[in-house]
Design a protein around this nucleic acid. Sequence first.
DNA 1: ATAGGTTTTGTCAAGCTTTTGTACAT
DNA 2: ATGTACAAAAGCTTGACAAAACCTAT
Lengths: 289, 289, 289
Amino acid sequence: MSESALLRIGELSKRSGVSPELLRAWERRYRLLEPTRSAGGLRLYSSADVQRVQAMQRYLAEGLAAAEAAALATRPLVEDRDASTAPAAARRELDAALSVFDEARAHRILDELLGAATLDSILSEVVVPYLHEVGERWERGETSVAQEHFATSVLRGRLLGLARGWDRGLGPRVLLACAPGERHDLGLLAFGLALRARGFRIFYLGADTPVDSVAGAARVVKPDFVVVSAVTAEPLRSAARELRELARHYRLCLGGAGAAEVEIGALTLTGDPVEEADRLTTLARTDAR
Amino acid sequence: MSESALLRIGELSKRSGVSPELLRAWERRYRLLEPTRSAGGLRLYSSADVQRVQAMQRYLAEGLAAAEAAALATRPLVEDRDASTAPAAARRELDAALSVFDEARAHRILDELLGAATLDSILSEVVVPYLHEVGERWERGETSVAQEHFATSVLRGRLLGLARGWDRGLGPRVLLACAPGERHDLGLLAFGLALRARGFRIFYLGADTPVDSVAGAARVVKPDFVVVSAVTAEPLRSAARELRELARHYRLCLGGAGAAEVEIGALTLTGDPVEEADRLTTLARTDAR
Amino acid sequence: MSESALLRIGELSKRSGVSPELLRAWERRYRLLEPTRSAGGLRLYSSADVQRVQAMQRYLAEGLAAAEAAALATRPLVEDRDASTAPAAARRELDAALSVFDEARAHRILDELLGAATLDSILSEVVVPYLHEVGERWERGETSVAQEHFATSVLRGRLLGLARGWDRGLGPRVLLACAPGERHDLGLLAFGLALRARGFRIFYLGADTPVDSVAGAARVVKPDFVVVSAVTAEPLRSAARELRELARHYRLCLGGAGAAEVEIGALTLTGDPVEEADRLTTLARTDAR
DNA sequence: ATAGGTTTTGTCAAGCTTTTGTACAT
DNA sequence: ATGTACAAAAGCTTGACAAAACCTAT
């Protein structure tokens, strides 16, 4: 975009789609814009002004009142740097600690993260990406099983710790299990935590659970949703028939990367645990009506 | 106890399937329920009331007369909190809670135990016997995989929670891993905790770890002891050659019931985790001299 | 989603699906919402309000009466996500619970913390700061003796529970005692726990212990380190002569804020228990060589 | 189980104010 | 370009109302 070019009000209006009158009104009422003036008194807008107008429009589109939108749009934008690079840095540090079996350091890093960020962001920006990374390295033969086991065990301990008491309360019940043969349960655990943060009650069966066993648990727990997850499609395909039967009695969702390629008429939750938790939340909300 | 959600009579009726009139009758006749009242006089039932109604229904289903059923349902559940008989009772309660997927109650029981007893005694008198019991029931086909998975997951979470940071300090280093193919890691975890309580530094790789991977980890960790464990003999036999090789470089111990029948010239730790931890402690102590 | 934006009632209504009239009714009747007002008197809702509305809807969907749902939704429950994980928040909650003598809630908070964080971080970011806070409030006369006693005894119980069996094992022995006249032992207790987490064996004599008594215990225990602690300098000064004598036979450390101003040729550990525990660990490690 | 009265809770209306985009005169 | 005016949309308060859910007592 053009850099330090100064725009007159007509041009700004054309670019932003906001009428000149309104631009002036925003300036007068909320001090949204701070144009310099030409010799003859014409307003000359800088690129900062352009950005503020765009921000203003975004906020308005979100439904904020003009006064509120303006307040946010004029707010000096900083912070970012920290918030955006911190997770990546934390992930690297975590990786370094875990790959040399330094559990204490890993815990220190996780402690700091838990103190500084929301659980959601830790899950989707540290834990899940880290798991992916480990998985890829594993495929490339760059990680030993021992390292992977160690890292997994440390993380599982932390996540299960955060999970304590996640079956209490009043929200909808969700029964979670990995498909038979599936050993990777941490993603599902992360999903469970994200759901918990949204008020669901979680019942967690963990890795490698036969479908009939899930059904048995469901009869006791009476869940509103049942989630069966797998990283590859194979475990889900093998169990397709049983899963369809399960879907007749319960609201079944298939989770994990493996769910993308399977078609058995159940909701698939393939993406980021936190986002998928949001989806399930809205689903549950509309259901409740 | 749990959250102070108070229900009105309609909701309690819906949840229990008992008509409001009957609920009021039970209250009037047997004082089964003790609802508080709203400002306007509506009954507000606590979770204790909910439980009493459920108990009442169970007793009625057993064929007791209403008066009898109510008498039993209102009786405060006597907890023989006697510390000496506690472990057995706690195990039973834990079992009951976990087999109906009641995680919150399981945690309460474990919390009380941790508050009242030493970790050693909890491990050797509650956790380990409980694991055995589950194993046996599993062999007799009395437990579903789901129940076993659920129970295991809850316990693993607690034990890993207690393990947090167990690699720090000054004691001898111990590297723990299950033999390749071995999936039962909780016994090994318990052993690790018992060792930790004696000052060892623990490095835990968990279930199903290839021996060469253990060796790789050992090169980094430089442990004073390496423990490889299995519940049956088979995984250890299959890996016998590699284990012998491992034993040439490290002080190797074989753990778990499977170790009893294997002969590869390593120290076998077949018994109770706590006792074996004591054995290893004296060994390490004499070593140090 | 959106940042610290303030919503007007229409937008909140659109987002939550609750009519403006009802939102106002909930505010009026249950004080569910606490909007700020614009200059002209329009309601401006924060994200906290949004969350309360969502919680309210969840509870309603569960079948609770509106009044009950609102009561639950207004009270920031511990179980609700990040409250439990962020140390600062946990400290506030703990404070709130203890200052109204709600022991059960305090225990719940501590349970969750123990599940979610490392003991180290709990000690240095919750327990110790909380003790400081109580101390300051006490000086300003804002806390009653009863509150302070209650809080102290609840915490002491928990910490002692964690301390169980901390004298066993292989690590260096540390004898801990408060100086004669010193009644504040919780900091020392926290220090002991941090040491224990690093593999030391702890022998704890508690508050107000005469120095010759410490010496007597030391003859039996044969500690590698003796730590005498006090919050103010006075108790240490009064006992200076005896302490010097003690330092001739044992490796003596002075702990607590009071140690800063005393000069008797012993290592002083004035800072955060966890950091000081780390210092002592490296000291012990180099010693061992 | 029914009858007759009460509480709770969502909804609506009337009358007035604030906010905000747009229009117009200078 | 500026300043004022204006009107539609959105909100505010007060008060009332009715259906659903509950109460007690017979």
